[in-house]
Design a binder for these strands. Structure first.
Lengths: 155, 155
DNA sequence: TAAAATTTGGTCAAGATTAGTCAAGAATAA
DNA sequence: TTATTCTTGACTAATCTTGACCAAATTTTA
């Protein structure tokens, strides 16, 4: 609430720009310079906060005229996006990544908070409570994909 | 009953702040420092006095910019129904019985159609897909109970 | 045109910064 | 006394920050 990390601040900055147009192109060194951090911090922010689980697609190009492009996408509307999301989940997913996906659905108003919470408790480590972490992650993937498919058919 | 423990004092302090806004974010080390106790004492206070049974949700994040967030939620009055259902479930439940319970919740308007559907796919034999039927029934019980516990409060 | 130089972004691992767990011992209540 | 609750700290885990080194694309030079 008070002391945000610089990564949080950069995240907010990028999302604020993304609020105006659904797609932005940035120059890594410029952003890094603007917030007085090393360039690789921008990669960290993107890798942890702008994944497909969060509802973002990222492309980039190196060399002169290079850029990082961030695009906001809807998880369930676009078949390709949903397919890539399911591909990312694969047959196994960590609690944290599942949480990010449900949070995105909530942010996109695809599900209500109550619906999202019901999904979350079914995906939580505490509820699944399986000894083998791999088995747990596989089970979580099956539950999440089933729920996503259920939501897809409805919309 | 005479001498308040330091845990009681910390509890009061946090609840006083929660009286002003329904959600607070604290830094564990700051609170610990303020009351001159070890940081893990804050975990103890939270674990014993800010549970969902008491009407609080807690989330946290480690690392730089880390925090502990405490949110006060409104407990609902149909708790008795949920309690008795949880007792019926026990530590194991068949798919058919789980379906009946969800159906009851839907008929009683405790959950919407969509919420009920999301619950059902997470409880189905096909989704869980566990070899051992007993393990499957136990897992189903944990998921259903977690979901019922989520229905105890309003969002 | 081909090689070299320059200009971008990418990866990874070490160190720093926070919170979580657990169990032993102390204090309090029954 | 005995049981429960509280306090403490050593150890663990997650997240963030930084920088050295790598890779790709473009531009300049031979």
């Amino acid at each position: 609430m008070e002391e945000k990390s610089i990564s949080d601040i950069i995240e907010e900055y990028l999302k604020q720009i993304l609020g105006e147009s659904s797609q932005i192109e940035i120059r890594r060194s410029e952003i890094a310079n603007h917030f007085d951090v090393v360039p690789s911090q921008i990669n960290y922010v993107i890798k942890t906060r702008f994944t497909i689980q969060h509802g973002y697609l990222v492309q980039s190009k190196r060399g002169g005229g290079g850029y990082i492009r961030i695009e906001r996408v809807n998880l369930l509307d676009n078949v390709d996006v949903l397919n890539s999301l399911i591909q990312v989940i694969g047959d196994s997913i960590r609690e944290r990544d599942a949480y990010d996906i449900v949070r995105t659905l909530y942010d996109e108003k695809v599900v209500t908070r109550r619906e999202g919470d019901l999904m979350l408790v079914a995906l939580s480590k505490q509820t699944l409570n399986v000894n083998d972490c791999n088995v747990e992650a596989q089970l979580r993937a099956r539950i999440l994909i089933s729920m996503l498919n259920r939501l897809r058919y409805e919309s």
